[in-house]
Structure formats: C-alpha cells, structure tokens
Design a protein around this nucleic acid. Structure first.
Length: 478
DNA sequence: GCATGATCATGC
DNA sequence: GCATGATCATGC
C-alpha cells in the first residue's frame, strides 16, 4: 500500500522543515493528522504503526534498506511506545533496529557499519501505548531529533565492537544482551528456534537485532520532557480500566522513571579515556589505586560520612567512581547492576545473593523469555569485591564486570521452570534448595513468618524470593 | 559449619 | 506500607 504524493508536505532536504512537519503529530494520533481517505485504507495488525507513520504521514515507501528513511538528510525515523506508570511516562520496550546480518556486519568498522550509517540521526516519535486502542489512535507524546551525545556514542561504539568481535570469533551463538552497555543485541524472531547461520562457525546462532536498552530511552524521554511544554492533559486519554489482559507477550521490564537531578556520570569529560580504553576499562582503572586498602582507609581518603552500615560498601564504591549524587548515570542508562560482595578471609561468601520476591500469581502466567528472573540474569553485573584480612578488616580486593554465560542461564531456566511448576501444583514445600547446588535457589523473604502472599490457588503462603547461591558467586569472582 | 528460616534497615 | 537488599538466628 502506497500513499505517494507528487509534492511532499515537507522539504526532504531541509532538516528544519522535516522536524517542523513531524512536530505536527505531537499531541495527536495518526488518525487525526492524515486525510480521511487514507484512513479508509487503514489496515490492522500489531507492530505496524511505525510502518504506517512512514507511509501515511511521511509518505515514504516502506523498505528494509541499509539506508536511512530520509536518505538526503541521513535521518532514520523511529516510532516507539511509552508506558504510563504512576509517576509518569517511561519507555515501554527497547528500541529495535535492524536485524544483525552476521555475514556482513563483521566486515565493517563502526563508522562504516550498517548500524551507524542508518542510525546516526534518529527522528524519534514516542507514542503512548494503550492496550484498548488500535494503533492509529495512539497519541504521540514526544517528537524529536536525537543524536547520541559524544560520551554515549563512545560507549555505543564499544558495544557494537563487542558484538561484532563475537561474530568475528565465531561466537555469534554466545552473544548476550548483557554483554553490552547501551547498544544491545536483543533476540528477534518468533521464538528460540529463530536461528541463522554465522560466518566463522558452523553453530547456528539466535537471530538478533541491534537495540537501544529501555533504560537508555528513559533518559531520552526525561530529557525531552524536561525541555517541553505539554500542550494537552494526558489524563483525558488515560484508559478507562479495562479487564483486558495486559500484554503478556511483553518481556519483563521494570518500568522506572529517572530523576535527572539524581544522575551523575562517571565520565564527566570524554577526554578522560586513555587511548583505546573502553568504558569498562576506565571504570576498572578508577578502582585500581584502592586495591589492598581497607574500607576505613578509603572512607578516610574521601572523607565519607557513613551513617548506615548496611550500604557502607556501596557508598565506598560510588565515592571511588567520583559520584556524589544519588545514582550513577551510565549504570542507570545501561541497566548495569552493581553489587558489592564480601568474602571471608578464606575466600568463601558468607551469604547468598537475594533478589526480588517470587510473585506467585505472576510467575504462573509468564514464559521464561519474558520473566523477571530471565531479565535479571541477562543483565550485566559489576561486582565490587571486598575480603576480610587477618585482622578482620575488609580490604578492596578486585572489581569485575560479568554476564551470566548461556549454559548457566539454561540452568537458571530449568530452576525457574521447576519453581513455576511447583507453584502450579500448589506445592510450596519442595522448592530447589541451596543444597541442591543448582546455581540458584528459593528461600523465604518477608518481614516475618506471618508475611504472606496470595497464591494462584487462592491460599496464602509465606513470601519467598530468588537467590543466587553463594558458592556460585564465589566461583565467578575467584 | 552450613543450610535454612527469619527478620532488619532503608528507600520509594 | 511494602519491596528490596542485606544480614542475623537457629538447628541439624
């Protein structure tokens, strides 16, 4: 279906003209900005809004070219959903770019890569997703041109290199979204069986696409919202509570709104990088001078006012990174999970690592790919390891970025399936225990033993949560 | 000494 | 008020 005009309503060689025209959809729906006779051609189906916007609003023929949508200006148009939460608007999902052609992408450098050539200027159209509406009735909230700030582009380039290096090493099947910081390689396909071949190995690899992490989009969203007047009251459009199931196809994303005032970057100036240094190497370098120092010595160096013992080690790590505000911008935007670990003098961990409660009524509705536990375990972790010395002082021993290898992720999946099945069977007594040695286990976690949660069968059960076994963490940081 | 159960401190 | 991250307490 094509709606090509002899004369476009904008000048495709003039960026200001394009932006001014694009802005006419802000606060409106697609139905409201296109001629009625075109709406008559409206076609249904999920996932097609971006295509409709390009065809019906920008009058660009659909293509899957390696070139940007607006070739003359090098601008790629991206239509992406927002989600309304209590505290405002956040990204509903990752921003997915083209599928990675394993056979081709590895042959380029970043600057000549298909990813960069297509996506260096993004015209972003954020709309508010409302499940009871059809797509042409979604309201566009933010329309803006986005170019990556230099400090972010640096990280994206390294991310791209990380992904492409795996292809070059015949390891495309080992690519994981947790490998990278802002630019991810998310799985893309109907299911796990969506495989494709790779050039340097006979092993089939999951089909993947470049993507911007949801948390990074939240950063763009906050920046945009901070600089704009809102010309209509979105509450008017808020969905009337419907009993439709909320998209169980969506992957688990902890919808979270940033407060820009709380964020502070580790890298204040891009010149802080030494030649050839990656972001992770830079972070590691910041810690190196403090290896072998005790917690008290580091506290003295930074003159920290540590009131709470519980978050002491986390505060020390933040101080070393030069962060005085509440949150670490790069870690927030990339969803890196910083964890402090304390080893005994012998090298064993005293405690396993706990995560969120198991939502009994939710896990039984989830598939592994969209589950909380899969979301957590595919993240990139940053471990800051302290160890007791002979005098029982904690000494900063090392730091380490880490992503769970796929074979361990498979063990975690089996654990998760077992847990889900037992909940379905209404069996809360026989979850996998730490002594089963399966990487992770289930253990109670509530205010006390009377802190209960409703089960799918309608009973009340003690709250329990996911844990990573201490022995497993030890094997990682050893 | 370790596995398991229980609960505290904090922040949203 | 409650979830989360962290740690304590008990019993085998």
């Amino acid at each position: 279906m094509k709606f090509l005009l002899t004369e476009l309503p904008y000048d495709k060689t003039d960026i200001h003209s394009v932006i001014n025209y694009a802005k006419t959809i802000e606060g409106k729906t697609l139905r409201e900005v296109i001629p009625a006779d075109i709406v008559e051609h409206e076609y249904k189906g999920k996932g097609g809004l971006g295509q409709k916007v390009e065809e019906m609003f920008f009058f660009i023929e659909n293509n899957s070219d390696a070139l940007p949508d607006l070739q003359e200006l090098g601008v790629e148009i991206k239509t992406t959903p927002l989600k309304q939460i209590q505290r405002g608007l956040v990204s509903k999902e990752r921003l997915v770019f083209s599928i990675i052609n394993y056979d081709e992408e590895h042959a380029f450098s970043f600057s000549t890569s298909t990813f960069w050539k297509k996506n260096n200027h993004l015209l972003l159209l954020f709309y508010i997703h409302e499940s009871e509406k059809i797509d042409i009735d979604y309201i566009f909230k933010i329309v803006r041109l986005w170019r990556f700030p230099p400090a972010d582009l640096k990280i994206i380039k390294d991310d791209w290199t990380t992904i492409v290096t795996k292809i070059r090493n015949g390891k495309a099947h080992e690519i994981s979204e947790g490998d990278t910081i802002y630019l991810g390689a998310c799985t893309k396909g109907a299911n796990k069986e969506s495989l494709r071949k790779q050039p340097f190995s006979t092993e089939m690899a999951m089909q993947r696409a470049f993507s911007l992490k949801s948390k990074y989009l939240n950063f763009i969203i906050e920046k945009s919202l901070a600089g704009e007047d809102v010309s209509f009251d979105i509450n008017e459009y808020l969905p009337i509570l419907s009993d439709t199931l909320n998209g169980s196809d969506d992957p688990y994303i902890p919808y979270k709104k940033f407060n820009l005032n709380e964020l502070e970057p580790i890298v204040k100036n891009i010149n802080e990088y030494s030649t050839g240094e990656t972001f992770e190497q830079l972070v590691t370098r910041k810690f190196e001078p403090f290896f072998g120092k005790t917690d008290e010595e580091i506290i003295d160096v930074f003159d920290l006012d540590i009131s709470s013992a519980k978050s002491k080690f986390y505060l020390i790590a933040k101080a070393i990174l030069g962060i005085s505000k509440k949150k670490i911008e790069e870690f927030e935007k990339s969803d890196i999970e910083m964890k402090t670990i304390r080893l005994e003098n012998s090298g064993v961990l005293k405690e396993s690592m706990s995560f969120a409660q198991i939502k009994y009524k939710e896990i039984v509705e989830e598939e592994w790919e969209e589950s909380y536990w899969n979301y957590i375990l595919t993240k990139r972790f940053f471990f800051v390891v302290f160890q007791k010395d002979e005098n029982d002082n904690f000494v900063l021993r090392k730091v380490q970025f880490w992503t769970m290898p796929l074979n361990d992720l498979e063990k975690a999946r089996l654990f998760w399936e077992d847990t889900k099945q037992k909940i379905l069977n209404d069996d809360y007594e026989n979850f996998i225990k730490i002594s089963d040695n399966r990487i992770c286990h289930v253990r109670p976690k509530g205010a006390d033993s009377f802190d209960l949660m409703e089960t799918p069968s309608g009973r009340m059960e003690k709250k329990k949560c996911y844990w990573l076994n201490a022995s497993y963490i030890k094997s990682i940081v050893q």
